[in-house]
């Protein structure tokens, strides 16, 4: 069921690009940081859309150590590789992604933090 909707959405950028080719907003790929509730007080943090020029495995390794949490890489059919971390690591991962010294040094604007 959900796949249908996802297909629709992946198609959307094209529609927009066609519509007004002058200003295509969709050129910018956002990194989405999301949170999901698990049972009890537990949560999961998912990071979606890290550019493929970075080695996700290495990122995960560093991040796991730094945040003292476990995590895994999930390769989703539509979303590509998603890093999934245990616990609410949203602020930490955002800092990591934007940090120029010890992180990826990405632009703050490309990152979207979702959730409550």
């Amino acid at each position: 069921m959900s796949t249908e909707i996802e297909n629709l959405k992946t198609y959307d950028p094209f529609a927009e690009a066609d519509e007004d080719s002058g200003k295509t907003k969709q050129t910018q790929e956002y990194i989405h940081i999301r949170i999901q509730q698990r049972n009890g007080r537990k949560t999961l943090t998912t990071v979606q859309g890290i550019p493929s020029k970075f080695d996700h495995k290495k990122i995960l390794k560093v991040v796991k150590k730094e945040f003292a949490c476990n995590g895994t890489i999930i390769s989703d059919t539509e979303m590509g590789e998603v890093i999934q971390l245990q616990g609410d690591q949203r602020t930490k991962i955002k800092e990591f992604l934007t940090d120029k010294e010890n992180g990826l040094g990405l632009d703050d604007k490309t990152i979207k933090v979702h959730g409550f």
């Binding site: 959900s2 907003k25 999301r34 999901q36 999961l44 979303m79 998603v82």
Partner: peptide, 15 residues
């Protein structure tokens, strides 16, 4: 102005 469509994004398997 145009606004972004609501996207669900990746959701991990819980449970």
């Amino acid at each position: 102005r145009s606004v972004q469509a609501i996207k669900t994004g990746f959701s991990a398997q819980v449970g």
